[in-house]
Design a protein around this nucleic acid. Sequence first.
RNA 1: GGUCCCAUCGUCUAAUGGUUAGGACAUCACCCUUUCACGGUGGCAAUAUGGGUUCGAAUCCCGUUGGGAUCACCA
Length: 476
Amino acid sequence: MKIRTRFAPSPTGYMHIGNLRTALYEYLIAKSAGGDFILRIEDTDQKRYVEGATDIIFQTLKRVGMLWDEGPDVGGNYGPYVQSERRDIYAQYAHKLVELGGAHYCFCAHKDDEDEEENAAAYAKLKDPCRLIPLEEAKKRIANGEPFVVRQNINKKGTSIFHDVVYGDIEIDYDELDEGVLLKSDGLPTYNFANVVDDHLMQITHVVRGNEYISSTPKYNLIYEAFGWQPPVYVHVPPVMKDAQHKLSKRNGDASFQDLVAKGYLPEAILNYIALLGWNPGDEREIFSLDELKSIFSAERLNKSPAIFDIAKLTWMNGQYIRNLSAEEFDELAQPYYQNLPQNLDTKALSAALQPRLETLGQIAEQTDFLSAVPEYELSLYENKKMKTTPEVAQKALTLVLPVLQNIAEWNNENLFEVLKAVAVNNEMKNGQILYPVRIALSGKETTPGGATELAVILGKEETLKRLADALQKLK
RNA sequence: GGUCCCAUCGUCUAAUGGUUAGGACAUCACCCUUUCACGGUGGCAAUAUGGGUUCGAAUCCCGUUGGGAUCACCA
C-alpha cells in the first residue's frame, strides 16, 4: 500500500520550529518510501483562527522545498482539504457513530469560558446523564432545534494497548479516558473526531504528531474500531524544547521559522538542523540536503526524549551553508543587506571578504558599518604589541604609504599587497607595521572583514586615499 | 494528585550485553595569518541514583530521584 502522510496544522499564526519539524518527518516518511504528502488545514476552532496564517504555512513549506501532493490549493482526490469545508462530512459520521453505539447526544448546557475545566470534569468523571436519554427522544429534541453535542462513549473496560513506532507498545486503562465532545454545538468537530474521520477518509497510513497525543490515542482507536476502520501507524514525536523545562513556543517569544530567516539563517540550514533534533542517520554525517534526507530517513531512528533547540549549533551549521554557497549565490543573497552601503563599493570584493566570516547574513550589518563612514576611534587603536605598532609608527607608515598608493598602476589586491610589502622592506619595517595601521586608518575598527589591502579594494582608490589622509591628520 | 512517557559530555547525539563510552556544537590551547575569521591539531567534558540478573550492564528488571505530558465544545 502506498504510504500517505499528512501535515495538519491549525492556522493560528506563525510556523514554529516544532511544527516544521513534524512536517519534515511526515514529509520524509512519505517521500523516503515514494509516498504522498498531504496538507490539510485544521481550522475547526474559529476562535483561534488567524487571518493570513494559511499563507504562512504555504510559503514556509514551499520555501524549504517540502511540496505537498494534495492540499487546499492543489486539490486532490480526497478533498476538501480544509476542515471547515468538511462540516457536513463530520456531522454525517458523528450521527453514524451514535447509531453504531460509539457516541451519544448530549444536551447539557455549555457554560462559556471560566469554569470550562471544572465543567468538563463533571461530565467526564460522573458520566454524562444524557447517555441515559433514549435515542428516539434525543432525536426528537434535536429535530425541535435544541442545541446538542455528540459525546464519545467509553464502554470498554480493562487496558488499551497500541503500538507506536517511536515509543513501542503503550498501555493505558480505559478508565483513564473521558467521554469527550466529538461534535461541538456549532456543528464543527473537535480535533478528536476530525482527525480520525479525515485520516481515514484521506487514507492516511502514518500519523505523525506530538507525544502529547499519546494519552488520547486509545480514544481515537475506539472510534476507528466503532466504524470498523483500520487505525494508522502511529509515530509520536517528543517536543522541541527551549530549555530542559519548557517547550519552544511562540508564546514565549521563541524564534519561529520566519524569525530565523529574517535574522539571516538560510532555510536549508534551518531544515537540516531541525532534522537532527531528535533524529540521526546512524553515522556521523550532519550536513544534508532535503533530497539526501529523503533517501536516508528512517522513522525507526527517531528519538524518544525531548531535544533542546540550540541556536549556537544552528548558527554554526548556517555558517557551513554560507561557506558552501558559490560566490555568485552568496553575493546575491547578501544584496538585500547591502542596501545602506555607499553606492561605489566593490561588492564583489566585499562579498568575497564576508563569505568566510559570516555565520548569519544578519551579521553583515555589524561587519560593514565602517564602510559608510569611519567611526570615532581612539589613537590607542594603533597600539598593537604583536604587530609592533604605535601611533608614532602608524604616522610614519601612513606617510610612507600615501604617495606610493597614489601612483599605483592597477588597484587590485595583489598589487596593493606587493606595493605595501615593498614599502616595509625598503624602510626596514615589519609587514604588520605598515599593514596594521593602514587597516585601522581605513576602518577605525579593531576587527574587520579582511585585511588592509582587501579593505582598500572594497573602498576603492579615491575613498582609500581620502581615509588615509584623514587618519594622518588625526595622528598629527 | 491519578495515569502515561522520558533520563549518555553544558547542548545535539552514537554505542540495540563485551568500545580506552565515539562524533558534532560550545569552550580552552596551539598552528596558519596583513586584524578578525575560515581552516588545521590537540585538551577539558557524560552513562542521574540504589539494588538486582549476568562471567560481563550505558544497554535487561525493580525501586528512588529528577523532568515532561495528559485529565477542554484547543489542537
